[in-house]
């Protein structure tokens, strides 16, 4: 069914697969980079909720586009709609957290009820109306890379350049803002603006991946590469670069495997590959990894030295 030789043969011979892999690789790399911020801001689940909520934007935009100009416009509006849906959900969560005693987790659950609920209701309406092009929306549920067109790839490329460009341009600002809010505010950074810019870029990264990984599983591509990369490096730039590589490889593996094996959706394969990186890193990372730590403890015990104070602080729900 699958062997490494066929894998590479396919990679180099099949034109469609090359194009599709290029698309998923870009998706993985962008999620990898922006995922680092979602991870470090401790907003992993926020990524999941934003992705869920984008379904509301997708279906609303699709209906609006169909009403205004037919199926072509409808498909063109889907991505902007997804972006707005995600941003709206974030704004909603922030409103609830800031104006009620409810905490972020409940606000996020509410966002699922409102936005995903409305999205599902609209999706079923679109399906029962049999609007032209409604089958295309199915790809956003669990992700399907194989049906990507050249135009899809071009869209991904442009958005990827925008997202990566913003994160490079504001590299040191985003870094300081994420690490030490008080200090950043003290030297005069406009905290709300930076917050909005960073969150919007994270939503953009999620939206880029919706078509290939789907509204349920894109969170995996956002969180896993970052969580894995964190174990190997001690700098943010190293983390972002490694995370991009992990995401990129996940994307290529997902696209290729699902092209080779019949009835294998792309999204889940990408998600599982990304998860594999997390567990490999959890055990085998050279300094922080579980095995490295166990070895160090064993050695320390043998030499009867006091244990090093190398446990990372923080973390943990």
């Amino acid at each position: 069914m699958f062997d490494i030789v066929t894998f590479f043969q396919l990679m180099f011979s099949d034109h469609t697969l090359r194009v599709v892999s290029l698309g998923t690789a870009m998706v993985g790399a962008v999620s990898g980079v922006l995922g680092c911020y979602a991870y470090l801001r401790k907003q992993a689940m926020m990524g999941a909720i934003v992705a869920h909520a984008s379904l509301f934007g997708i279906t609303t935009a699709f209906l609006l586009g169909t009403a205004l100009g037919g199926s072509v416009l409808a498909m063109q509006l889907v991505l902007p709609g997804a972006f707005l849906g995600g941003v709206l959900a974030m704004a909603f969560v922030s409103l609830v957290v800031h104006t009620t005693p409810l905490k972020a987790d409940a606000a996020m659950g509410l966002a699922v009820a409102i936005f995903f609920g409305a999205g599902i209701a609209l999706l079923r309406m679109i399906q029962s109306l049999s609007l032209m092009g409604h089958r295309g929306l199915r790809d956003f549920l669990f992700g399907q890379a194989a049906t990507m067109t050249n135009a899809d790839i071009r869209t991904i490329a442009v958005l990827a350049v925008v997202a990566i460009g913003i994160s490079l341009l504001f590299w040191k600002e985003f870094k300081l803002h994420t690490f030490d809010r008080d200090f950043a505010a003290g030297i005069g950074y406009p905290m709300h603006r930076l917050d909005q810019l960073l969150l919007a870029t994270i939503v953009l990264a999620i939206v880029i991946g919706l078509r290939t990984v789907g509204v349920i599983l894109i969170v995996s591509l956002l969180v896993c590469p970052a969580a894995a990369a964190r174990q190997w490096t001690k700098s943010l730039s190293g983390m972002a670069a490694l995370s991009a590589v992990f995401g990129l490889v996940s994307g290529i593996v997902g696209a290729t495997l699902s092209a080779m094996v019949r009835n294998l959706p792309t999204g889940p394969v990408i998600a599982l590959t990304a998860t594999a990186f997390v567990f490999l890193s959890l055990f085998f990372a050279p300094h922080r990894g579980v095995i490295a730590r166990a070895l160090r403890r064993a050695r320390n015990r043998k030499h009867l030295r006091p244990p090093e104070a190398t446990l990372p602080v923080g973390g943990g729900v």
Partner: peptide, 14 residues
Amino acid sequence: RLFAGDAPLGVVFP
């Protein structure tokens, strides 16, 4: 203690 915030949840459920 190797992961920040709610990342483990975001890794395992998908």
